[in-house]
């Protein structure tokens, strides 16, 4: 196993860790302060799921925490990044054309970029392979 890390190898590591921290922060905020996120839950989702908006915010936060941790440690890197990226892209579509939606579109594409790159040298996947 090579010991030196080239500059090209650092890029996907930064991308993966930075994106996982984004999901972990937003996920934790949704778990701690769900009331701040209730207005983002579409009415159609509430009526379709028959669950309260607070529970949906909690589940969304838990989803982002669990898969964000997996992405942070590089465990099932591609799968975690794919689910988080698609999840965020779906949220982006529901927001319509706004500043938040444009930002989230960029973040979702950055997350999907990890899917195409796959694991880096600091991933658990790499260590286990």
């Amino acid at each position: 196993m090579p010991t030196k890390i080239t500059s090209k190898e650092i890029a996907p590591i930064i991308l993966r860790i930075a994106m996982s921290l984004v999901f972990l922060w937003f996920g934790s905020q949704q778990l701690i302060h769900p009331s701040n996120w209730l207005s983002f839950v579409p009415d159609s989702v509430v009526s379709f799921s028959h669950l309260s908006a607070t529970i949906l915010v909690h589940f969304n936060g838990a989803f982002e925490i669990v898969f964000g941790l997996a992405l942070l440690f590089g465990f099932f890197t591609r799968t975690s990044a794919l689910l988080l990226g698609l999840h965020l892209f779906n949220i982006t579509l529901s927001l319509g054309l706004s500043a938040i939606a444009v930002r989230d579109f960029g973040l979702s594409m950055a997350t999907l970029a990890i899917v195409f790159y796959g694991m880096d040298r600091f991933c658990l996947d790499y260590r286990m392979s």
């Binding site: 909690h58 589940f59 936060g61 925490i65 997996a70 465990f75 099932f76 799968t79 689910l83």
Partner: peptide, 22 residues
């Protein structure tokens, strides 16, 4: 199969966390 198992386990974790916080 390992990927599917990972997704199922992760979703179960998510549900458990949701229940704890709700």
């Amino acid at each position: 199969i390992p990927t599917i198992i990972f997704i199922i386990v992760a979703l179960i974790f998510s549900v458990v966390i949701t229940i704890i916080f709700s």
